[in-house]
C-alpha cells in the first residue's frame, strides 16, 4: 500500500498534501511513498512544522479506475470538497484529475488513515 502525507494548513485550515518539497493543495501533486519508512520519516518531520500545518498524518493510496486515489471515502471528500456543494472546495477547479478522483470508489477496505486521529 502506498501512502501520501496530508494535513490542514494552520492559517486557513485548507487541506494540503506534501509534494516532497512543499505543501500543496491538489492531491494530484502529492508525493506518493512506496516505502512506509520514508513516509513515516516525512510525517515525523512535518510534525515539527507547527506554524505551518496541523496534525499531519499519512493516508493510504491505491489505484482506482486506473488512477491513484485515497483509499477512504473520507479522504476523497477532503481531497475534493463537500459532495453537496460541487462549487466549493478543491473540486470547484474541475479538471481531469478532479473528475478521476470523484469517480474513484469501491476499493475502500480500511479507514484509510494509518493512525486514526479523531479531532475537532
Amino acid at each position: 500500500m502506498r501512502h501520501a502525507l496530508t494535513a490542514n494548513r494552520l492559517s486557513d485550515g485548507e487541506v494540503v498534501f506534501w509534494s516532497g518539497a512543499d505543501w500543496v493543495g491538489a492531491f494530484a501533486e502529492a508525493r506518493l511513498y512506496d516505502s512506509e519508512a520514508e513516509a513515516r520519516a516525512a510525517e515525523a518531520k512535518a510534525r515539527g512544522e507547527v506554524t505551518r500545518v496541523i496534525d499531519p498524518y499519512l493516508i493510504e493510496v491505491a489505484a482506482m479506475a486506473g488512477r491513484d486515489a485515497p483509499v477512504s471515502f473520507r479522504e476523497r471528500i477532503r481531497a475534493l470538497g463537500p459532495s453537496n456543494r460541487p462549487d466549493h472546495g478543491k473540486q470547484a477547479q474541475g479538471g481531469e484529475a478532479v473528475r478521476a478522483l470523484a469517480l474513484a470508489e469501491g476499493a475502500a477496505r480500511s479507514s484509510g488513515r494509518t493512525a486514526l486521529i479523531r479531532r475537532k
Binding site: 490542514n8 486557513d12 485550515g13 485548507e14 487541506v15 507547527v50 496541523i54 496534525d55 473520507r74 471528500i77 477532503r78 470538497g81 463537500p82 466549493h88 472546495g89 479531532r119 475537532k120
Partner: peptide
C-alpha cells in the same frame, strides 16, 4: 496546537475537514 485548541474551541472555532 495542543494548548491553543481548547482556547479556540471555547471561542467556537473548530478545525473541520476543509477549513476552520
Amino acid at each position: 496546537e495542543e494548548q491553543f485548541k481548547p482556547l479556540r474551541l471555547i471561542n467556537g472555532l473548530y478545525l473541520q475537514l476543509h477549513a476552520y
